[in-house]
Amino acid sequence: MLDDSAEFERIAPKLYLTPNYLAAKVDHMVETIFLKYNIYKDEMEFSKNGQILFLKKQNGRKITFENLNQKYEVFKFEDKLAYFMVHNDGKNQLLSRQIVKFQKEKLAKTSYQVDKPADFKRQKDVFYLKFDNVIKEIFSSKKKFYDVFGNKAKSVKTNNLIIKNIEGLEKIIQHLNTI
């Protein structure tokens, strides 16, 4: 895709959640590991003997970045393992996927335009609900949103919470966990 050129060096940090390796706890290991989340590849990287390696994805693996106060967990989704950011604990969980897309270089078509170099662009996070052990995407349309809950939709609707922000979604999931 891209080589080790100066241009790639300029945009490479955009692949990651943070530019540096951060202290993280993996599962129930006592030892702290320094990891960096490569959002573009959906991989947790670590460096060993000057070589970049990837943490093995296992269903249910939990990673907690201590300084960021963020938790990630590996779930099977669409027939592959993927990292999800976990926003709450409990039977039902609010999850999100962070996405980075590669944008190809665009050459100017006229002299009035300028060339746009290749770049990695962070996309809007996609939210999911882990409900009855099934992961479903959360839509911003109220009708599609409440359809996810099936027979518990009526109980969730009575809260009158805003579904377009993370605080409202977290409150809905907390309420759902008490039912």
Rank of each mutant, 00 (worst) to 15 (best):
M1R: 12
L2G: 09
D3M: 11
D4Q: 08
D4R: 05
S5V: 03
A6R: 01
E7I: 10
E7F: 12
E9D: 15
I11K: 01
A12S: 13
P13S: 04
P13T: 05
L15R: 14
T18Q: 03
P19M: 00
L22E: 05
L22M: 00
L22I: 01
A23V: 00
A24P: 00
A24Y: 00
K25N: 06
K25H: 08
K25F: 01
K25Q: 06
D27Q: 01
H28K: 11
H28Y: 12
V30D: 11
V30G: 01
V30A: 05
E31L: 00
F34M: 02
F34C: 00
L35F: 03
K36I: 06
K36A: 08
Y37P: 15
Y37M: 13
N38S: 06
N38E: 05
I39F: 05
Y40E: 12
K41P: 01
D42T: 05
E43V: 01
M44G: 12
M44C: 11
G50Q: 08
G50W: 13
Q51S: 09
I52T: 13
I52W: 07
I52F: 08
L53G: 11
F54Y: 15
L55R: 09
L55P: 10
L55G: 09
K56V: 13
K57S: 06
N59S: 14
G60H: 10
R61N: 03
R61Q: 04
K62I: 09
T64Y: 13
T64Q: 14
F65L: 07
L68K: 05
L68T: 05
Y72P: 03
V74K: 03
F75V: 02
F75T: 01
K76T: 15
K76C: 11
K76Q: 12
E78A: 09
D79I: 06
D79P: 04
D79T: 10
L81P: 05
A82S: 15
Y83Q: 09
F84I: 03
V86T: 03
L94K: 06
L94V: 07
L95C: 12
S96F: 04
Q98V: 06
V100C: 10
F102W: 10
Q103T: 07
Q103V: 14
K104T: 10
L107C: 15
A108Y: 08
A108K: 12
Y112K: 12
Y112F: 14
Y112N: 13
Y112D: 10
Q113T: 12
D115I: 15
D115C: 13
D115Q: 13
F120D: 06
R122I: 06
K124Y: 09
K124N: 14
K124C: 02
K124I: 08
D125M: 04
D125P: 08
V126D: 14
F127M: 01
Y128G: 08
Y128F: 15
D132W: 08
V134L: 11
I138W: 04
I138Y: 03
K143L: 02
K144A: 04
F145V: 11
F145A: 11
V148F: 04
V148N: 09
F149T: 08
F149Q: 06
F149M: 08
A153E: 06
V156D: 06
K157L: 10
K157V: 12
T158F: 04
N159S: 10
N159G: 14
N160F: 08
L161W: 08
I162L: 13
I163Y: 08
I166V: 11
E170F: 00
K171C: 07
Q174D: 02
H175W: 00
H175S: 00
N177W: 02
N177C: 03
T178P: 00
I179L: 14
I179W: 02
I179R: 03
